[in-house]
């Protein structure tokens, strides 16, 4: 069974998944595996590992800068997979979702990528600029190696499209909570709740919500609505501000804060329901 499916099955009764995002190789390739373990110890349930790309069109300034730093450090798709393999030496259970853009995967070849990603111990790929209409080839290659293709849903996605996307998706679906790039303005919780409820009508897959979550308060609000809370730019910014020496402590501190806020929100929700 894919680690993502197992993890969501474990969580379904107990709580919500916290999914932090890191750009591989930022601020330093030697730190990435250390940071991944620190995230798990501080309460992460899944990790999204960003594959740096020269032209990250869907990302805001924080993750753009992280991509530029990672590329300047010599990071590539192959080296990202090597980092996943090193993470797996000490962590066999935490799912890793590779998040990035299609061209590096095209350059490697779908089959070669899916094979290498599975060997390294990755569990899924989320390719931001590949809608399911163009995704059959990569989806088949991933599937053949036991990996999921994770897809985005957006505020502009119609119900008919949502149905089609969820059919192509595996592991979970990622609802982009606002019109904009990563790290943009804060989210509208009531609107997100409406949209998540609509997505639940078309799929049984777990639903993650990302974009616009930056602190314990916003994570807690989303934890009441969705199965997974995804935090990217806020974490990448903290790590960048802390610098290589303080990166690990900064990551632990933010993820710990998010974890505590989410658990409290879920416990309170359960108590309220009871």
């Amino acid at each position: 069974m894919n680690r993502i499916d197992r993890r969501f099955r474990e969580l379904r009764a107990a709580g919500r998944a916290l999914v932090p995002y890191l750009t591989a190789g930022d601020p330093d390739p030697a730190l990435t595996v250390t940071l991944m373990h620190a995230l798990v110890e501080a309460g992460a349930d899944l990790i999204e590992l960003g594959v740096p790309f020269s032209d990250p069109m869907a990302d805001g300034p924080v993750i753009q800068a992280a991509c530029e730093r990672a590329l300047a450090n010599g990071m590539t798709l192959r080296r990202t997979l090597e980092l996943v393999a090193r993470f797996r030496e000490r962590d066999a259970g935490t799912p890793v979702v590779l998040m990035g853009y299609l061209n590096p995967i095209e350059a490697m070849g779908y089959e070669a990528f899916a094979h290498a990603a599975a060997e390294a111990g990755a569990d899924a790929a989320l390719t931001v600029d590949m809608p399911p209409e163009e995704g059959a080839g990569l989806g088949a290659a991933l599937h053949a190696h036991g990996l999921h293709a994770v897809y985005l849903l957006a505020p502009t996605t119609t119900e008919a499209r949502a149905r089609r996307i969820c059919e192509a998706a595996g592991g979970f679906v990622y609802y982009v909570s606002l019109k904009g790039v990563t790290g943009a303005a804060s989210l509208d919780t009531a609107e997100v709740a409406r949209r998540v409820a609509a997505i639940r009508r078309v799929t049984e897959l777990p639903i993650g919500v990302g974009f616009g979550i930056r602190d314990g308060a916003s994570a807690a609000r989303v934890a009441r609505i969705a199965d997974a809370v995804i935090v990217g730019s806020a974490l990448v910014r903290r790590i960048a501000e802390a610098g290589p020496a303080g990166a690990e402590a900064a990551a632990r501190s933010l993820v710990g804060e998010l974890r505590a806020a989410m658990d409290e929100a879920v416990a309170r929700g359960a108590a309220g329901a009871g």
Partner: peptide
Amino acid sequence: GGRFVAETLMAP
């Protein structure tokens, strides 16, 4: 050719 964009742009 084709249409390789983030989901938000598919509807527009």
